[in-house]
Design a protein around this nucleic acid. Structure first.
Length: 645
RNA sequence: GCCGGAGUAGCUCAGCUGGUAGAGCAACCGCCUUGUAAGCGGUAGGUCAGGGGUUCGAGUCCCCUCUCCGGCUCCA
């Protein structure tokens, strides 16, 4: 049998040779390091026969993602083994590797709860399995044998998994892996043994529905992570520690940007500094929108439930709306701007010459999100979006989508962070003809391709009224959040009876495009705080410069400098507390001040300031006017701030 | 909403098996008059999330509620 190695050479092996044989044929060092092989796009056990004439890659600890996934999957089995020993009667379900580690889901016997306090004991037992150097032995079992075995053990979840595999894929055998005393239904692959798990740590415990279905049993999920070396594990734990330090909830409090209170769960209280940032972003959105033909409107907060019945929200979304009543009329606070904008559009006659009409509104929205989903600024009940709705003709869709997408990408470029794009296509339950969906999806896809953007397709994830492009990014801990969106909507125009007069003097139905770039300003600021670790670029910084008089003899001069700079439009504070200069510099640094301007005897005499720049330290003395010009240029260009050395 | 955890001064936290609440930082008041990341001294500050219960006695034990944290589900 011949297989091709990554460098193009061909390796000849006896028929039936395994991955281990191949590694040994290449060299004894590789034979020791080999963990698995990759062939035909699939990671396979070292002990399994190779596929002839397929490219072969030997996976070792240096193989990155593939290697980590292997030992984390191994670690999940070791976790299950330890848990079964410590908690007799526990039922096991599934335990895959994930981006940052692994988890395993269990159903513990009645009355047993596992908390982080139990981790030491579980980890100790896991280390015993690792120290024992158990091998992972793969075996095939017939469905009949496997079902009998797992039924006998009372492992109901394994039984269900096998039954579903039989039903959906018609399989008649399954693979099981054994390490030490523990055997698990598993597709594999695994490393040869437990010994390659160099370092393992359990991290958290959480509830998780069996098969992600809220109507089924809530299992107990234990999360952990594993690495080849203790050093790598420690580096990861250190990274997580630093990520927590830039958590927007913590920085928001420390920097005085916003607070939360029990009196209004899920709603931020914006302090002056946070409000400044908020207003800068609204200003940016407004400025960029005006350049692109968006016109701002203002629509009400509260609407008669009739409007929500027209829009369809009453049927589909009512449990997420805040509803109230007055004088026997039922009202709902708006969770979205679109019905208001559609109503506005319906209020006048439109010619095809008027289209597209682009209404934007950074309006306040309320959504009654489930209490358990609230999360700092990233998931709130009260927020504003850089929201807009475009009313256009079928022919204009492509151009308008292009404008929206470019608008979004140009917005993100200002902040220098990457977004992931997702194209969601027609769901099972939908309105409109297949031709309509073909056109709509085609238009979105064409723009994405024309712009050379990479994106993921989520088949069936579109809204019932049209396909959409969503823009996602991640927070400091790697959790994904949706920011912007571009959604085609054929439904709302229908429901509101929207029309324009075409060149043929007949009525036509416009198409509506829902779009946002940053999404909610709240969420965007949360992401920005973590992205910048609180060190905002000058144009966003709540306080752009803090003037520090050396002693109270220079307070007047410091205030004069501040007043001059404010006259130039800069946001300037004076810290004239009777604290030592060192202390006030420290406080300024901790407040992430972009510039600290020291004013003492010399500066007061010649109209200068001694400039200390964040991360650069003392950059020398310059005339006040010169500093103002430097800062103004930095702000005008929305320049990124210097990074830590 | 569901599972688990947590809630003590403005913030970070201590408070052993029940016996009248404590530290650091911040705040306030003085002194110091300060040259690029913490000057010194003093003062004040708590319905121990809220409510109910057990007990001679509850921050500590039990129950309910609220909020937050980690996940899951949801996000038209």
């Amino acid at each position: 049998m011949i297989v091709t190695l990554p460098d193009g050479t061909e390796l000849e092996l006896p028929e039936g040779a395994t991955g281990a044989d191949a590694a040994a044929a290449i060299g004894p060092g590789l034979a020791r390091a080999a963990l698995a092989v990759r062939q035909a796009g699939e990671v396979r056990d070292l002990a399994r026969p190779l596929i002839a004439r397929e490219a072969l890659e030997i996976i070792t600890a240096k193989s990155g993602r593939d290697a980590l996934d292997l030992i984390r999957h191994d670690a999940a089995h070791v976790l299950a083994a330890a848990v079964m020993e410590l908690y007799p009667g526990v039922k096991i379900s599934i335990g895959p590797p994930i981006e940052q580690g692994f988890y395993y889901d269990f159903e513990f016997p009645d009355g047993v709860t596992v908390t982080e306090a139990d981790f030491d004991a579980i980890e100790a037992r896991m280390r015993e399995h690792i120290a024992a150097g158990e091998t992972f032995d793969r075996a095939e079992a017939t469905v009949v044998e496997a079902l009998a075995r797992f039924r006998a053990e009372g492992q109901d979840y394994k039984v269900e998994l096998i039954e579903d595999l039989v039903r959906d894929q018609g399989i008649d055998t399954v693979s099981v892996y054994r390490n030490g005393p523990f055997t698990d239904l598993c597709r594999g692959p695994h490393a040869p043994g437990t010994a390659t798990i160099g370092a393992v740590k359990l991290q958290s415990v959480a509830g998780a529905y069996w098969r992600g279905d809220a109507s089924r049993t809530m299992l107990t999920r234990i999360y952990g992570t594993a690495f080849f070396t203790k050093k790598e594990l420690e580096a990861e734990l250190e990274r997580l520690e630093q990520a927590r330090a830039r958590d927007h909830r913590r920085l928001g409090r420390e920097l005085g940007l916003f607070t939360f209170s029990e009196v209004s769960p899920g709603s931020a209280f914006w302090l002056p500094k946070g409000t400044t940032i908020f207003n800068q972003l609204v200003g940016l959105s407004r400025e960029m929108g005006e350049e692109r033909g968006f016109t701002e409107v203002k629509t009400p907060q509260l609407y008669d439930s009739e409007l929500w019945k027209t829009s369809g929200h009453w049927d589909k979304y009512r449990q997420n709306m805040f509803v109230t009543e007055a004088e026997d009329r039922e009202f709902g606070l708006k969770p979205m701007n679109c019905p208001g904008h559609a109503h506005l559009f319906a209020g006048q006659r439109w010619s095809y010459r008027d289209l597209p009409v682009r209404y934007s509104e950074p309006g306040l929205l309320h959504r009654n999100e489930l209490s358990g989903t609230l999360h700092g600024l990233l998931r709130v009940r009260h927020f504003a979006q850089d929201d807009a709705h475009i009313f256009c003709t079928e022919e204009q869709i492509e151009q308008e989508v292009r404008t929206c997408l470019e608008f979004a990408m140009e917005t993100f470029a200002i902040f220098g962070f990457a977004v992931e794009l997702e194209l969601s296509t027609r769901p099972e339950q939908r309105i409109g003809s297949d031709e309509m969906w073909d056109r709509a999806e085609g238009a979105l896809q064409k723009v994405l391709d024309d712009e050379g953007l990479s994106y993921q397709v989520n088949p069936g994830d579109g809204a019932f009224y049209g396909p959409k492009i969503d823009l996602h990014t991640t927070d400091s801990l790697g959790r994904s959040w949706q920011l912007g969106t571009v959604q085609l909507d054929y439904s709302m125009p229908e429901r509101f009876g929207l029309v324009y007069t075409g060149a043929d003097n007949a009525d036509h139905r416009p198409v509506m495009i829902h779009t946002a770039r940053m999404g909610s300003f709240e969420r965007f600021i949360g992401i920005l705080v973590e992205h910048y670790a609180g060190e905002f670029p000058l144009w966003l910084a709540p306080v752009q410069a803090t003037v520090l008089p050396i002693s109270d003899k220079h307070a007047d001069a410091a205030h004069a400098v501040a007043s001059t700079l404010r006259g130039q439009g800069l946001r300037v504070d004076v810290d004239d507390r009777t604290e030592s200069l060192g202390r006030r510099i420290r406080d300024g640094e901790l407040a992430r001040a972009p510039y600290l301007l020291v004013v003492g005897e010399r500066e007061a005499a010649d109209g200068t300031v001694s400039v200390r720049r964040r991360h650069e330290g003392d950059i020398g003395t310059m005339p006040v006017a010169e500093f103002a010009a430097v800062a103004a240029a930095e702000i005008a260009e929305r320049r990124e701030a210097p990074a830590p050395a």
